[in-house]
Each structure stands twice: as structure tokens, then as C-alpha cells.
Amino acid sequence: MIHAQGVPEVTDADFTAEVLDERGRPVLVEFTADWCGPCRQLAPVLSAVAAEETDRLKVVQIDVDRNPATAARYGVLATPMLFVFRDGEPVRQLVGARAKRKLLQELEEHLEQRPAARA
């Protein structure tokens, strides 16, 4: 699998526990595949987002070929497909690779707010 460093892989078996049961911060799920060129382009972006936004966002990957039930459940027909889940519900869907800045802009409204800096 094209594994973004620092981004855990989830499976059909643990998707509910790792994604749907997560409360508090939203979960960004990348539906990916080994053969997917744009997924390879997105891997370092996801690694950076996961590292930089860990307090506001949980990031995971799921391989569509090894986990067809979850891919089918969410109608994944192309990769990479990104879903943002909040409290067990998909609230945003994005298709295709993008730069980190663009991805963060598209996710901002769904991220946990950062605490205000103290003076």
C-alpha cells in the first residue's frame, strides 16, 4: 500500500471503531489503492497534515482493494477519495490529489478550532 508516513491504515473490520466512533476531532479518511498514481502524490501531503494538525484532525487511510465493503458503503469509485467524518457522519467529500495548502483550506471549516493564544 502507498502508505503516508505517520498515517495509520484502517480496515473494514476496524473502520467503525477508528472512524465512526471517534468523537471530538473530525477524521479525514483517504480511500487509496496501490496502483493509484495520484495517491502517491497525496501521500506526503497527508503525512504533513497528520503531523501538523494532530490536535484538530485524525487522519487515516483505507485500501479500497483490500477493504471493498467500506469502499462500497461510501460509493468510492475513484481514488484518492477523501471523506471528512464528524461524530460518525460524512460531512465533506473530496476527490483527487491536491497541495497541502489547498487541502487545509478545504478542510478548515471542519477542523477543531485552535485555543486562543494567551497574552
Rank of each mutant, 00 (worst) to 15 (best):
90 P>K: 04
22 E>Y: 10
55 D>F: 07
71 A>N: 03
58 K>M: 09
45 V>W: 03
12 D>R: 00
11 T>Q: 08
6 G>P: 03
75 G>P: 06
9 E>N: 13
61 Q>K: 12
85 F>A: 02
77 L>D: 09
12 D>Y: 02
74 Y>V: 00
17 A>H: 10
18 E>R: 15
73 R>A: 14
8 P>V: 07
6 G>H: 04
17 A>Q: 14
85 F>C: 02
74 Y>R: 00
85 F>Y: 07
52 E>N: 13
34 D>N: 13
9 E>Q: 11
59 V>L: 05
85 F>H: 04
78 A>Q: 15
8 P>F: 08
73 R>T: 14
25 R>D: 03
3 H>G: 14
49 V>I: 14
27 V>W: 08
20 L>F: 09
22 E>N: 11
3 H>Y: 14
39 C>G: 04
66 R>W: 01
17 A>C: 07
67 N>S: 08
80 P>M: 01
11 T>N: 06
58 K>T: 11
22 E>S: 12
39 C>K: 03
92 R>D: 15
13 A>C: 08
19 V>K: 00
85 F>I: 07
35 W>I: 08
59 V>C: 07
53 E>W: 13
26 P>R: 08
10 V>N: 05
21 D>Y: 12
46 L>T: 07
54 T>D: 15
60 V>Q: 00
11 T>M: 03
49 V>N: 05
46 L>N: 05
62 I>E: 00
85 F>M: 02
59 V>R: 06
22 E>I: 13
82 L>T: 01
77 L>W: 10
51 A>T: 11
40 R>N: 12
41 Q>R: 14
28 L>A: 02
10 V>L: 05
36 C>R: 00
61 Q>F: 01
13 A>E: 12
1 M>A: 12
49 V>G: 04
29 V>T: 02
93 Q>L: 12
86 R>D: 14
38 P>R: 10
87 D>V: 11
39 C>Y: 05
76 V>R: 00
26 P>Q: 05
90 P>Y: 05
54 T>H: 15
21 D>M: 13
13 A>Y: 08
32 T>V: 09
89 E>S: 12
2 I>R: 05
42 L>G: 01
55 D>V: 09
74 Y>W: 06
16 T>Q: 14
71 A>P: 05
12 D>K: 03
30 E>L: 07
24 G>I: 03
69 A>E: 14
34 D>Y: 11
44 P>G: 11
41 Q>I: 10
27 V>L: 08
59 V>A: 05
2 I>G: 02
66 R>C: 01
54 T>P: 08
84 V>K: 11
83 F>E: 01
42 L>H: 03
